[in-house]
Structure formats: structure tokens, C-alpha cells
Nucleic acid binder design. Sequence first.
RNA 1: GCCUCGAUGGCGGAAUUGGUAGACGCGCUGGAUUCAAAAUCCAGUUUCUGCAAGGAAGUGCGGGUUCGAUUCCCGCUCGAGGUACCA
Length: 1149
Amino acid sequence: MEYNFRKIEADWQKYWAENQTFKAENNSTKPKYYVLDMFPYPSGAGLHVGHPLGYIASDIYARYKRHKGFNVLHPQGYDSFGLPAEQYAIQTGQHPAITTEENIKTYRKQLDQIGFSFDWSREVRTSDPNYYKWTQWIFIQLFNSWYNKTTDKAEDISTLIAIFSTEGNSEVKAACDDTIEKFSADDWKNFSEEKQQKILLQYRLTFLSETEVNWCPGLGTVLANDEIVNGVSERGGHQVVRKKMMQWSMRITAYAQRLLDGLAKIDWPQPLKDSQTYWIGKSEGAMVSFKVLSPALSEGKGARDSGYLTGNQDIAHVLLERAKEMRANPTQAEVFLWKQLKSKKLDIKFRQQHLIDDFIVDFVCLSKRLIIEVDGKIHESQIEKDFERTKILENKGYKVIRFTNEEVIGNIDKVVSKIIEELEKRPTLSEGKGTNENNEVLPLGKDLGWEIDVFTTRPDTIFGVSFMTLAPEHDLVPIITTPEQKAAVEVYIKSTAKRSELERMADVKTITGVFTGAYALHPFSGKKIPIWIGDYVLAGYGTGAVMAVPCGDQRDYDFAKHFDLEIPNIFEGVDISEGAYTDKENSVIANSDFLNGLPYKKAMKRIIHEIEQRGCGYGKVNYRLRDAVFSRQRYWGEPFPVYYKNGLPQMIDLKYLPIVLPEVEKYLPTEDGKPPLGNATVWAWDTEKSSVVSNQLIDHKTIFPLELNTMPGWAGSSSYFNRYMDPHNTEEFVSKEAVNYWQDVDLYIGGSEHATGHLLYSRFWQKFLFDKGIVPVDEYAKKLINQGMIMGTSAFVYRWEYGLQSDSINLARKPIYISKGLIEKAIKSGLMVSEISEALSKIYSDLIGYHKSLGESLAEWSHFNPIHADVSLVNSSDELDIEAFKNWRPEYNDAIFIGENGEVLPFGEDLGGDKYIVGREVEKMSKSKYNVVNPDQICEEYGADSLRMFEMFLGPLEQSKPWKTSGISGVLSFLKKLWKLYIVENKFSVSEENPSKEEFKILHKTIKKVEEDIDNFSFNTSVSTFMIAVNELTALKCNKRAILEPLAILLEPSAPHISEELWKNLGHTTSIATVDFPVFEPKYLVESVKEYPVSFNGKMRFKIELPLDLSVKEIEEAVMAHEKTQEQLQGRVPNKVIIVPGKIINIVG
RNA sequence: GCCUCGAUGGCGGAAUUGGUAGACGCGCUGGAUUCAAAAUCCAGUUUCUGCAAGGAAGUGCGGGUUCGAUUCCCGCUCGAGGUACCA
């Protein structure tokens, strides 16, 4: 009776499927246990042996828990939306759904033959409308929610509307867009519906906004930060550029603090927690505003010195009077235009007859720095002066556009559209503080009304500020730059814009920057602080500006040194001549007025208090985490349940969900640049009152455009684990009963590459769903394990490259491949080895003379080129199947091989026992390296149980380790040996005799160890334990039921097929799957004697067997009396004898 | 640069609280069985030294704590992964 794994495995896989052995019930008297795998993306390449590693580990654990009396949920599904299927569709026209369906079939077949205990009745696929209905549903829930910072949770948007209509928004603490204007309850009520919706959109947890995104032209879509590797797209390696686009975003930043806090209560790997913590990037500090000084005060250069205005009376006063007067007496054209500018149409604030610096302008939009002048008759004689005035204003960052009276009166629409066009081109700035509450211009000479806000984690070092640095893209740069510096600044900005992200990354050391000519006012010391621009300051982080403290920050220090700026020292007793002092915990502040003598923590407290007192800033926590962009310009993803009304997004009613992905003819963007969904003419959704046709929602005969973007890859995977609890529910995402029963995932196994993607987004969604009362816990996975990567062992053949390229000897030669041993020998000596020479002379006799004439030096006349050979062409002894290799690819058809012993292999009938041995190297398993090992082949050749045990046996689950198929034979022979224990005279038979003490001891030490190992996820050592047990039982010829029956149960989680078969043959009629795990009984392991190791000065020298009940004194006597002890001591008297009873004896001499 | 993890025979790895370093498996060597091969079984296999019994050294490198360190501490080297001027 042979161990016929092929038949056994096929039989049991069929049995499990037919009997739904692993179907989990949503109610049970047993305690629940939820074991989850990261569901796969079904790629066209199928599985290689690296993929199932984590699945095998989780399957062992799931099966183990079933034996331990748990109701186990162990589901599997497919993350089936994604780029490869879409790329394939673009190339071939095949619908991604078909490709995906085919790939899933392959995956399922491959998974099934490994014998997983998945509950397939709960399978989910993210691309299935019945599944993505709920992804769309969660999106709508997010849209209908805002984050209340007072209650610290997400709430329905209706609670926000209630607050707005009773008290306005000034007291609302919400996670929202920072730039929202303040309004009162009355304002709110008076706002148009449209305006109200616009405001609400800035508070919603998923919102539309113009964001700078990573645009990948090669893929025609935006990418998330974690989809970009080294500045290029993770998939395909295409170039990525920054681009502003209207995009859906998810307000994950609202949860930044809770995402950090939650890490403390989950058992996840520390490195993964660290990378999430770093990604969230919390830093505590303060926002500080620095006033920008007017050029008049800073450099003595300003408008007044330009000769345009003269006189030294109180200019401001005079000008203010004049402005008032002019406002009171407008021209007809001015009145006409003012009406337009004031109307809600432009939705932006303009001022009339306003004072800018020393000039009165007709109209100005301060937040856009746009001045509109209407030229009447009076100005006609002043063209030259106006030109000069425009120049000065433009130097201050204003754009001046002029219209004539005739233009304004004659074609006001054209004028307005020109203004709108200009407005759209200009960046929006917060209005300066150049005016007081009555909209009157403040006296000049104080400041320009501009402030530079900086975020700093070291406000305590504020007295060390000796300059400021702005990012080149900072909004204020064009405004504050002085005319003298304008050219230099422009050149600098151009040069930094040219430097790509990659270059900037590669070249961190080069310090570049330029002075703007402007100065800021130090809020405490009152000193003038020069304002610089430098590309070490990033526009995207904080405010895009820093207060530079060269004595406390190395980058500021380097910048100061490079441009010879002041480096004041504000640390007590610290030398900063060589570099900045960055040890904040141990710093004591000096030369800093009221902060003198204070250590870091006290100084921080004091300065933040002072900053807030003076109104020049406030304490602030800043996060590196950005809101997650949620739009993709793809076809193969979830459609948004969104249409647009007056340009504002509206959620499609829940009753119409799912919004099914429409058919398209082409999967590329449309000709006018819309996403692929723009190609859809018919949306598969039609009801009596509403229907979706031709990209439009028709509701009561009104036509609205639909959202044409689709959701990103992480949408479908962010809550799939909850859906497994209740996958067929058509009424709810998950029922209360189901989610209250299963609660959360007890064990989650998957790769660490998802640390800052899926594993962060899914925690965010879970917290949101928790806030909304949909799920009962706010962390979905109690324990997470990252399985390590399995590396491939690539095989190389060595092609002999002979002669120089120009050499005629190269021509008409067949490629020659030389075996690894000979290559190594040749490379080591640097000379031609005789085996190769002789072989070569057999092939091409003329070659020998050739290389001899060159003095036999290898390097001079040839070298060896390693070439990847497919690992399936190599056997377990690294021997190449020459015929198969030659047939593998056409270019190898006429190859010639020189074997390990120097024989020319294809010649003659007898190969003389020589072999071609390949070289080996461990690399990442990948198709392009021809080192992937297919699990199907392994199952066919060695069986699924062998594959399962071998994958575990390779090493610790979390480590990356190389795959070498040859090792699997050890596991197979173990299974054969195990099988034989149950066989007597070629028949299945066990003895009913009572086991001996020794046999019981083997069994129980195995139970103990295996239990410990599985509990610690140390599956590799549990395999060893089984091998030891089987070896020992074989040695005892043990054939007793009382030992072999529990052994089968112990082994079931790791090798389920053989265990089921043994169990059946032991006379059982039902599956072994839920049989109780054997109970460890310590009594079988009690010993009466111990073989003590005896060490001398810590080195073990010999062993001595002693009864365990001896006292320390008796042990010492016995050891000292031992002849070997005397031999070691050679008459010396030991200084000390250490005895740890039951453990060790150490004699110190 | 910073963060994290790691380094043990020819190879994968074991040693769970500081207590016999190298379990278990692969590979290799020798033997049995066989006409032969596969399969199977037995013995050996860290290094150096020795015919052997034995002896000595040894867990990336250099120090330290300890009766005793692969394990703990300090300082390095190398490798893998993450991150990238985060103010």
C-alpha cells in the first residue's frame, strides 16, 4: 500500500467541496475565530510558490483553531479591479471582465489543489456589482458625513447644517479646508442653495477639490503616492508629473491622530507600525506669522522714491481722503463695471478706489492681486506715467488690466469674461492686513500688509532666526521680491522648476537659493530678517516657508554658511562652529530675552504662550499625511454614484445602487481628454423616473452629467473583511447580527508592502464605519503578520564570448556554453583550463592555436557571459536538461555544451556521464528572471501536503528566504515514513495494544511542542518536531492506535489530505477537521534522571547522568568525584562550583 | 542621511526566561540492497589537529557585563526593506 498522494489529495478536495466542510455559520455556541488573508489580484501569470506562503500559514492556524473548538471564519476572494486587465483590454480589446473571470478560474484551480480550508460560499470579488454596490454605498456615507473635532468623530452632515443655521460656522471645529470664510447663522440662511452646497463640500469626508496630483501620462491616470516608486509609476515605470486637477479626495487627515492612537492597541509588527507612524508624520510646534516689511523701511526703496509722488506730509491721510472723494464721484463706466464686479456672478471680493501702497486704483481684487483700471479722458495725457505706475505695481506682484470707457459701456460681457479669465490664471492669496475693519488703509511705513506664516517644531529657538526661506513656488515670492532682485529670482525659479523630482532627490547636497530683497519683522526682537528663496523648502509641506534657525537646524546652518548669513547662537554652553546643535531634549536656551536659561520643554511652553498672547501665531500639530486622492481616470474600477447639478456633485439615490460599470468600445480616454467612461453611450440602469443614458442622468426629464472617473484600487479592499461576514446580504453592507458576532479579524496575514496603502486606508474606513455605528470596533484586525518574500533561485548558463568583436574568428561560430565548475576554475586562475582547451579543440581545432598565440590569458581573448536559464530546465542536482534548453528558445537551438569534466556534450551517443551544471543565484522570484516555480508542478510531483509542509519548513514565516525545490524531497520522504507507521505487511493496520512509556513520551512531547509552535507561528520548527516524532516512532516500530490516532490530528493542520486519509483508515466515517486537539499531559514527560553537562569556565567538557532529586551538595560531591573532573582540574582546586539543579554544572578554576 | 530588520556549517535554518551551539532537512562521502538504476535503509559530515581516543578554536568585527553570552550593553562592518531636504 503505497502513499498515493495524487489520489488521496484529489479525493479529499472533492469531499471537502461536496460536504462544505469549512463553511462557517454566523451563529454558533462555539467561540468565534476569524482568520483572514489579503485577497489576491488575479493576474494573468497565475500563482508561483511565493504566493501561497501566507495562505498556508493562515490555513494551518485556521485548521488548528477548529480542532481547538472555535467556529472559524476563513474566507477568500479576489481584488479583481485593477490596471493589468485594463491594459490588456487596451491592447487586445478583450473586456477586462472576461480577462478577470479567466484569471480567477486559474487562481481558483491553483488554490484548490493546495487544499485550503476556505469557506468559498463567502467569496467576494471587488469587480462584482453586488459587491461594489457597497463600495459605492460607503462612498455615499462618507460624502454625507463631516468630522466634528469637538466630539472627535464623524457625524452626519445634517448636524453640521443644524449648527450653521443656528450659530454660523465660527465656533465649529471641524476637519475641513482651512480657507473657509466665516459666516453667521443669518449669512447661512441667506446663502443660495448653491453656495450652501459649496460650503458643505468643504466639510464632507469625501470631497471634490482642485488638487495637485501625480499625473502619469503613460497610464493616463493619477497615482497615489504609494503607487509611485523612485519617481516613476510602480506599474510600468512610466514618468509621473505634478498636475492640478479636480479630484475626489478622502479626508483621511481627519483621522490622523486616531490612526496613530489605534496602533497602541493592535498586535501588528513593530516595523509596520513604525512606517505608518512615520507616514502620518505628526509633529508638534507652532504657527508663527512674520510681517513683511515695506521696501521703504527695509531698503529705502519704494514707490515714494520713484518720483511719482512727492511731498513728505502724511501721505496716507491725504490719499485716503482722495480715495473717499473719488468713490463718491464715480464715472459712468466705473458705476457700470462696479455693478458687475459686486454681483455674485464673480463670487470674489473687489474693492473700489482702493489704496495700494501709494497709488489709488479703480478696482482691485486683493486675494488675486488683480487691478482693473478704467481709463477716462483725464488719463489720456498721462500714458507715460501710467506705464511707470503699472510697472511699479507689477513689481509688487499685481497684475494690472486696463479697459477704456468705451469698452466697458459698449461690451460689458467681453470685459467681464476677460476679468474672469485673468482671475482664473491668478493664484488665490489670503487678503493682506493692509486695511482695518472699516476697510480703510492703514498708515504706511509699518508693513506691507503681508505676512509669512511658518510652521516650526522649534518655536523655542525663535530668537535664533536670522533669515527666512520660502519655497520657490510660494505665493508671496512674486509680490515681495524687490525690483533689484526680480531678475535673479526669476532666473532661480526657472532653474528649480526645471530640476525634476528625481534630480532633486539625487542631489540633496547642492545648496541653492536667492535673496528676494525683502525683509520680515521678527515678532519678538523686532529685527529685520532677510527673506530668501531656496529649494530645500518644499511647497507641499507646512506653509512652504520656514523661519531659519541656523544654529539649531543643519539645513539652515548649511544654507547660512553657503550664503554667508548670520548664525547667532542661542544655546547655552554649546559650540556651533562646526554644525547646528540639534539635540532638543538637552538644549538650554540663551540670548533669547524671556526664554533665557529655560530647557527645551519649558521654553516651548513659554514661547507658545507668548506667541498666542501677542497674536502672532498659535500652537499647532502638523501632520505629514495628506488627504487621499480618490479619482482615477480608468475604466476598470468602481463607478462613482455621482452626477452633477450646476457643477456641484450630487449623490445618486441609494435605491439605484449599484451604478453598474457601462460598456465602452474603447478603453482609452476620449478624444477630448475625458476618462474612458466618457466613451459610454448606454449606462445599464433604467427606471421609470430616472435613467442614465449617454453619460447623463435624466431625472424628471432634466439631464445631468455623470461622474466619469472611477475609484482607485484601494476602494474595494478597504472594508472587504467586513463584507465576508455577511456577503450575500442585499439590504445592508453587513447585518448587525453578523458583525456583532464576528466583530473583527483575529489574525490577518499578508505582505508588508501594503503598510502605507491598504493597511492604512482600511483602518481609516473602519474608524469611519465605527463612528457611524455600522461596525462595533474601530480597529478591524487584532493581530497582523507579514509573511516574508520567497526568493527565486535563478539558474545561469555561461556563454563563452570568444575573440574580439572585430575578429573574424567570431563569424559562423555556434554559441558554446561551459559548465559552472570549469568557469569557476578558469576565473580563479585567470587562465584557460586544460579541460576547456581540449574540448574546444574537438569543436573548432583552429581556436586552440588562436588562443595559444595570445598567451593563454583568459581576459585577453575571451570572457563568460551568464545567461538566465529557466529553472524548470534544471534538475535538483543543478544539472541542465540540454535537449530541453536547446528547444526552449530558437537562439539556443544550435548551442554546444562543455560539461563539468570537459566533455563536449551533444557529440556522440554516450555522454560519458558528464553533466552540464548551472550556476545559481538568489533573486526576487519573477517571470523575467525565469526563476518562478509553479505550485501546480510541485503538487503534481510531490503532492500538496509536501508543498504545504515544505513552504513552512523553509524558515520563519516573517523572514524572506530562498526557494530551492530540491529540499522538498525531505518532506516527501517524511510523509512516506509517516504513512508506513500505519501499514503492516502492506495493509493498513494499527495495534490496539497499550503504548509503552517511551511511546507516550514521544507523543506528548510532540503535542506540547507543536502546540507551542503553532501558537507562536513558528511553523518551521513544528515541521521539524513532526520529523523527529516520526523518526523516533519508526525506530521503536510503534504501530499503536493510542499513539497514531492523536498523531494524525496533530498533523492535520499542516498536512490535511494525508491526515484525513489516515483518519478514515483508522475507522472513522467523518472528517478529521473538527476533532478535538490531543491534550498534553505533563505526567508523561516527568524524568527522574538528568544528563548534566559539566562545564569548565563555561566550556562544556563532558556529561554526567545524575538523579534529579539530588541536592546541590550531593551533585557537587558526585561531580567532584568524577574521574573526568579530576582529569580536567589536574590537581587544581576549583575557585567555585556553580550548580543549577536540573540545568547545568559549571566549575570555575 | 534617518527608521526598521538581519548576519550561526557547503545550503535553508534550530537553540522560546543568559545555561550542552549547529536540532530538523537539503547537499555531500562511504556502505547495504539491486544484474543495473530508481526507491529504500545504515553510518559519517562546523573548522583545525590527530591513525585513533582525544585536544583546541568557533555564532559578521572590536570591546564590556557575567561563574557562563548566538542571547544583555557599548562601538563598528556588511546586507535587506521602508523613507526621502517634513522645518
